[in-house]
């Protein structure tokens, strides 16, 4: 901090520095710049950027049982288009993402409620709602499988108390994806709520004061002020939640997967998502060429949906 006092002395020196000196200084700054980004940059290049191209190449190859691979042109992609497993997984993925998006309005309402002026215990609520976000997915999957258990699960027990007959939620192909999406929402609501809460803080208070003077109640204020002012945040949250949900793996693997063929969940084939299929092809069946092609289908889907969302935002997002 002693350097502060020396500023006035140092400043004129710079003014009289000649051109060659300045050039040398700039060169030196270049070197420093490259040196600073090199470790992270080279790592990203080796482990993230180059692998994308490598994966693209693999998507045009076929893998043998002993690790070698041969170029087969676009065959993987041709096969993929008419593969019912891929189209099924794609459909499940889109359905799962749509279901998880239902959590976005829930998080918005929760954020607005927690932001109620004069509400006591807001910090406690925030922590409780955020707990599922930090809980290890493996632990989450474990307890939800237990809760959903058809014979001894708590959920069916509670349902039976009110006279509803339960099902084998995660083992029944009709329900497994919905049951998983509930967990997906449960795990993300707190996260999105925090982002919405930050957005709420950015809304000028006088808007609400003016509305109050005009006699607008809290519900009216929510729809006429909060919602439009929060639409950029809602857009951001929607895009991020969709991208995350389209890549769902953890909860599917943990709730519907199994580690041995003998105990395979009857619901998995009809409820698997695209990343789960990718994982099985790449690391269980060692069909890495086909898996690579599946990964590019996922990239395409994400890109398309994100573009659609950016196009559609003009209709509902208000930028102040």
């Amino acid at each position: 901090m002693t350097t502060l006092e020396e500023v006035p002395v140092a400043a004129p020196q710079r003014a009289v520095a000649g051109r060659p000196a300045r050039k040398r200084l700039r060169r030196r700054e270049w070197l420093w710049g490259f040196a600073f980004i090199a470790p992270n940059g080279l790592g990203l290049l080796a482990f993230y950027i180059w692998p994308v191209f490598q994966t693209l190449y693999y998507s045009f190859t076929e893998w043998g049982a002993f690790g070698g691979h041969t170029w087969i042109g676009a065959e993987n992609y041709v096969k993929l288009v008419s593969d019912p497993e891929v189209s099924g997984a794609l459909k499940n993925t889109l359905l799962y993402a749509a279901l998880v998006l239902l959590g976005v309005p829930i998080s918005l309402v929760l954020a607005a409620l927690i932001n109620t002026p004069g509400l006591r215990g807001a910090a406690v609520y925030r922590v409780l709602y955020f707990l599922p976000v930090v809980t290890m997915p493996a632990a989450v999957g474990m307890v939800w499988r237990w809760l959903y258990n058809g014979d001894i699960g708590l959920i069916n027990h509670v349902l039976s108390l009110v006279g509803i007959e339960g099902h084998h939620w995660v083992a029944d192909p009709r329900f497994a994806l919905y049951a998983t999406a509930v967990v997906g929402i449960w795990m993300t609501v707190g996260y999105n709520m925090v982002i919405f809460a930050a957005g709420l803080k950015g809304i000028p208070k006088d808007l609400y004061e003016a509305a109050e003077l005009d006699g607008a109640g809290p519900v009216r204020q929510f729809f006429s002020i909060t919602l439009p002012m929060l639409s950029p945040t809602a857009f951001f949250v929607t895009v991020l939640t969709s991208i995350g949900a389209l890549q769902v793996f953890d909860v599917i693997y943990l709730m519907l997967g199994s580690n041995s063929a003998a105990l395979r969940n009857p619901a998995i084939d009809e409820n698997q998502t695209i990343v789960f299929l990718f994982f099985e092809r790449a690391f269980v069946d060692n069909d890495k060429g086909y898996a690579a092609a599946i990964a590019f289908v996922l990239l395409l889907v994400i890109l398309l949906l994100t573009i659609v969302q950016f196009r559609a935002q003009k209709r509902w997002v208000h930028y102040a």
């Binding site: 700054e29 270049w30 070197l31 420093w32 710049g33 490259f34 980004i37 940059g41 990203l44 482990f47 993230y48 950027i49 180059w50 692998p51 994308v52 490598q54 994966t55 693999y58 991208i243 389209l246 890549q247 990343v275 990718f278 790449a282 890495k288 898996a291 690579a292 990964a295 590019f296 996922l298 990239l299 994400i302």
Partner: peptide
């Protein structure tokens, strides 16, 4: 330093790619 913004965009592009595209390599 020269190329700074291009390199930064390259960094950002990593953020856009789903992680499955890195996994096999």
């Amino acid at each position: 330093f020269p190329g700074r913004d291009v390199i930064f965009m390259l960094f950002l592009s990593v953020l856009m790619v789903p992680s499955q595209l890195f996994l096999i390599p």
